[in-house]
Design a protein around this nucleic acid. Structure first.
Length: 491
RNA sequence: CGGGGCGUAGCGCAGCCCGGUUAGCGCGUCUGCUUUGGGAGCAGAAGGUCGCCGGUUCGAAUCCGGCCGCCCCGACCA
């Protein structure tokens, strides 16, 4: 019997760890807080990356690569930025190891102490704006629209697979513009790209909004975000896009001459999503049998399990399996035929369920005789006997249906777990009873926000773009509301 | 950084309180036969510096001291 999965109702965080393990997404590393991303997890990331990368290219961005190591002095140049990141930076101080003469163990060679420490990037604004300051002289050099796919390191106290690890993979876009309007438009556009990606590929409904000052990116003027709701009623930030104003341009003396021959600081944005999205995917769609993946991102969309008892049956079954595989691949469906004789069919069924493969075909002697196949879908676990005739078309349609169903199901969950309240008692009641998003009036002060966080652990996840009916009074101060905001306990 | 848990075969664990033969069990692995439509059965086999260092003892996985590591919960967290 393989990896049992703890039911969600029993222990949600253990369930999450069990799903990651049973789905073979990741493994622990010898270093605390780091993770090994296994082929199943990395395959998922590759599909996410591919879709996002195309969307970035379609909006005019180019990929580049900036270094892992950043001079320590760079971090200090933007005051808010350093304040936000200083506490979680890995610092490189030496360039080689040597054998300790006292006990024969390896140690950093004191002779190799670096003149200036290097910081392993927690994000790349500083090294990028140092670079941009040399690349930009004139309005003709703008805009610069660059993205990079990279790893970053943030020395976290407490880690969780995918959701918060010391090292993670992400993309970070960094753009430079001549005007504020253009930079703001860029930040908004990229938030829209993330929204489309989350909804269309991940089947993840999200709320778009802006962050309050206290939740803003260190060094940003405005942080835009998309927020999603997980199955345990906690919110997860799925992507952020920042309007950085001229903060980094000023810190790194990045100026350009405009068309009026005046010297101006450049306007900036940055935006990113990370492997954390895999955590979002797991906690949105998966169930007590394991992972459930949206078809558009699943590394394998159809697993085919042949069933036979002897050589004769094997030959007959495999002939049909091969033909169906070709038909499916001709429709660009990602197919995996599992002809291993070392595992039995039932074992394979359970395995593909744990790994979240959206659909499965079982083909045995009976099916060969009747020109049928058994088609199972992961999201509802329904099994049906279907004719081989038209199978590829049927599966194409089914994959679309599953994709839509996952979105609809997640959307319905979010609707059920979004509560609108007008007073603090109702707020606390909603938070305790069912969790989820709570929409409430807010007076815009940090004092109210902090008090609510202190007393309930819920934070303002975002100020939704939709501010059409701001009314009522602040939950704690009683002052007239200036915003209608989304509260939740968050990851 | 605080609280808790764990460290014994590839994985999961028992044994430790109460020291004493060749340190067990389940899963997995290997071999053979039978099996194969929901995580197969039988028979046999391989596999261990009991986290590390020191101490007590005739004798330590077990008792004592120290150290290291990992996980979970909390605090913290663009």
């Amino acid at each position: 019997m393989a990896d049992a999965i703890t039911p969600r109702s029993e222990d949600y965080s253990q369930w999450y760890l069990d799903v990651v393990k049973a789905g073979k997404l990741a493994d622990y590393s010898p270093v605390r807080g780091c993770m090994i991303i296994r082929p199943n997890g990395y395959g998922l990331w590759e599909h996410m990356r591919e879709a996002l990368d195309q969307m970035f290219k379609d909006t005019g961005h180019e990929n580049a690569y900036f270094p892992l190591f950043i001079p320590e002095s760079f971090l200090g140049k933007e005051a808010q930025h350093v304040e936000g990141f200083a506490k979680e930076c890995a610092v490189v101080t030496h360039s080689r190891l040597t054998v300790d003469p006292d006990d024969g163990t390896l140690m950093a060679d004191p002779e190799s102490r670096l003149d200036e420490n290097l910081v392993v990037r927690p994000t790349s604004e500083t090294i990028i704006w140092d670079t941009y300051s040399r690349w930009i002289q004139s309005w003709r050099d703008l805009p610069i629209l660059i993205n990079q796919w990279a790893n970053v390191v943030r020395w976290e106290m407490r880690t969780r697979m995918f959701l918060r690890t010391m090292e993670f993979l992400w993309q970070e876009g960094h753009t430079a513009h001549a005007t504020q309007e253009e930079a703001v438009a860029e930040a908004e556009q990229m938030l829209q790209v993330y929204t489309t990606f989350a909804e269309d590929y991940m089947a993840l409904p999200v709320v778009q909004g802006t962050k309050t000052a206290s939740e803003r990116f260190a060094g940003a003027v405005e942080t835009y975000c998309i927020e999603a709701l997980m199955q345990d009623g906690k919110a997860l930030q799925a992507g952020t896009s920042h309007f950085l104003g001229q903060n980094f341009a000023k810190a790194f003396d990045c100026t350009f001459q405009n068309k009026n021959n005046e010297l101006e600081h450049v306007w900036a944005t940055s935006w990113g999503v990370s492997t954390r999205l895999i955590g979002a995917l797991i906690m949105t769609h998966s169930d007590d049998q394991g992972l459930v993946l949206p078809p558009r991102l699943a590394p394998t969309q159809v697993a085919i399990v042949p069933i036979f008892r002897n050589d004769e049956e094997q030959a007959a079954v495999m002939a049909v399996v091969d033909r169906i595989q070709r038909e499916l691949e001709a429709k660009d469906i990602r197919v995996k035929v599992d002809a291993r004789e070392s595992q039995r069919p039932g074992w394979k069924f359970a395995e593909y369920e744990a790994q979240g493969v959206p659909t499965r075909l079982a083909i045995g002697p009976r099916d060969v005789k009747n020109d049928n196949a058994e088609l199972a879908r992961r999201d509802t676990k329904e099994k049906t006997i279907v004719p081989q005739e038209g199978l590829a078309e049927r599966i194409v349609a089914l994959l679309d249906e599953i994709q839509q169903h996952l979105y609809d199901r997640a959307f319905a969950y979010r609707e059920e777990h979004t509560t609108e309240v007008q007073d603090y008692d109702a707020f606390k009641e909603a938070l305790n009873d069912k969790g989820g998003f709570i929409v409430a009036p807010w007076d815009g002060t940090e004092a109210s926000e902090a008090q609510i966080k202190d007393e309930t652990k819920a934070t303002i996840r975002c100020i939704p773009f939709d501010q059409s009916d701001v009314s009522g009074t602040d939950l704690v101060s009683g002052n007239p509301a200036t915003h209608r905001v989304l509260f939740a306990k968050a990851y």
